[in-house]
Design a protein around this nucleic acid. Structure first.
Lengths: 270, 270
DNA sequence: AATATTTTGATCAACAGTGATTGATTTCGA
DNA sequence: TCGAAATCAATCACTGTTGATCAAAATATT
């Protein structure tokens, strides 16, 4: 009724109806749509292909299905996929800094998750304190590692715990190393975060660890996220895939030792 | 209703329903799916094979089992698969006891994980406090649920947190309902556990909740595990697939209300 | 008004998804 | 351990879908 009245209309209107129809029904067939919208199958197919390119839906033989990855899951999945190579080499280098017996803080984020994957196959024995549920989930399966998970509310977007519980608990630990990722990094603001909980937990980790190692992928350089978490003075080491030109000297002045681990696209050394 | 309306449709929609079915039930048979989805067994088999290649599930003769569990920890996976139908119907019944706004304690174990799967697709809004990392991991993705994870050491065998941290934290909550699984159940010893941490956390949950609901699969009846966790007096409700003959009266005397949710092997009501 | 650009619908050969059939394989109960 | 029943992989024919191409129509541009 509603839809048929808007038949013979322009592409934008048609696609809007199409999207709504898809949202309501979850999945639609080309034939149905052609019927509802009064357009030929060819047109519908073109629409669907376009919307698929936009990522709104998933094409299938005979029709399409709405993309309902849960928002959180999708966001995480996308983040996981970004700059994978860079994150992996950073993670590998960072894991190399740890030695058996160390107590390690790890906050959350896709770079940290990459470190966790490294640790899962490494041979060091560690005591790991983390706020990331997925990191704990992965590492707890390993007998070489003792995993302590900070308690508190689990945030949907990042699957990390936060809040008073987490911070109070954190205050009872003293770590050798804190491995910290962030949303932004600059010499003026240090490690910055889009989320207040992340910022707060990360700062506390930095303060309570002897050595603070920042894991920063190159796109994050010279970018300040909303909140400053760890001031630059707290940072001892910086692990990154590539340091922007001109930053080397300033980092040296700030007494930050830099470990460069360039991403290896194809081949890689053992 | 939900599934049948989207029947005879495109592959993606079908596979999505299939995945959801799998997520909720933990395991599915080709015959059931063929019935539910209105597709031939050949098609279902092709779907399952495809999803198995994606690593979503594990193929088996006659059906498939969910595999959202980590690749490791075989023991957990095995326990997960034991008495699946019983656990599912218990989980379904237990989930039905909860109403929006409730604060719920959940300990850990495969039965509890089954409840989590139910809650993931249910429509209640809850505040969930749990010691199980995998439960938190699953539920945190859901916007209807606020998840609070107890902190502390993550045990490898069960992927649950325990220790002083967890217990101290637990003491700050007051719940409406505690959903508790156990390793053994008897009228003399109540809920018993093989692990001291489990016993201790569960007891504390029972004490701090207005209503204590025990989830017990029938093989656990009249079996006392090493440690008593929750004394029988604390138990208000018992959800189980089948109560052994003769136990009904004694349970009534102990003022425990029994909810029997027999396992459904093949057909199931919508 | 004339022309360029985009959108649309029709046609058709190639193709993918489905269900049925078959004979091999596995599972389960006796 | 054996045999019956269920499940499987492989194959085939059928149907509906696809993408490409092209001409007509609608729309925008000059």
């Amino acid at each position: 009724m509603d839809s048929s009245s808007a038949n013979r209309r322009n592409p934008i209107a048609r696609r809007r109806i199409l999207r709504r129809e898809l949202a309501v029904r979850g999945a639609v067939s080309v034939a149905e749509l052609s019927d509802i919208l009064g357009a030929s199958a060819a047109t519908i197919r073109r629409d669907l292909d376009a919307l698929a390119r936009e990522g709104v839906l998933e094409r299938a033989h005979g029709g399409a299905a709405a993309r309902n990855l849960r928002p959180a899951e999708e966001a995480l999945a996308v983040r996981e996929r970004k700059d994978i190579e860079e994150k992996q080499s950073i993670a590998h280098a960072a894991a190399g800094l740890l030695k058996s017996g160390d107590t390690v803080f790890m906050n959350d984020g896709s770079t940290i998750m990459a470190v966790a994957r490294e640790l899962a196959v490494a041979e060091v024995e560690l005591f790991v304190v983390t706020s990331a549920v997925n990191v704990a989930h992965l590492l707890a399966e390993n007998s070489r590692l003792t995993v302590c998970l900070l308690g508190g509310f689990v945030r949907r977007s990042s699957l990390a715990t936060s809040g008073t519980f987490a911070e109070t608990m954190l205050e009872q630990f003293n770590a050798d190393v804190a491995l910290l990722s962030s949303d932004g990094f600059s010499l003026s603001e240090g490690l910055s975060y889009a989320n207040a909980d992340d910022a707060s937990v990360s700062r506390k980790m930095a303060l309570r660890a002897k050595r603070c190692v920042a894991l920063v992928t190159s796109p994050k350089f010279e970018w300040n996220a909303r909140l400053t978490g760890v001031p630059i003075g707290e940072v001892d080491d910086l692990v990154t895939d590539a340091v922007p030109a001109g930053l080397h000297e300033e980092l040296a002045e700030a007494a930050i030792s830099v470990i460069e681990a360039p991403a290896m696209r194809a081949g890689q050394a053992a």
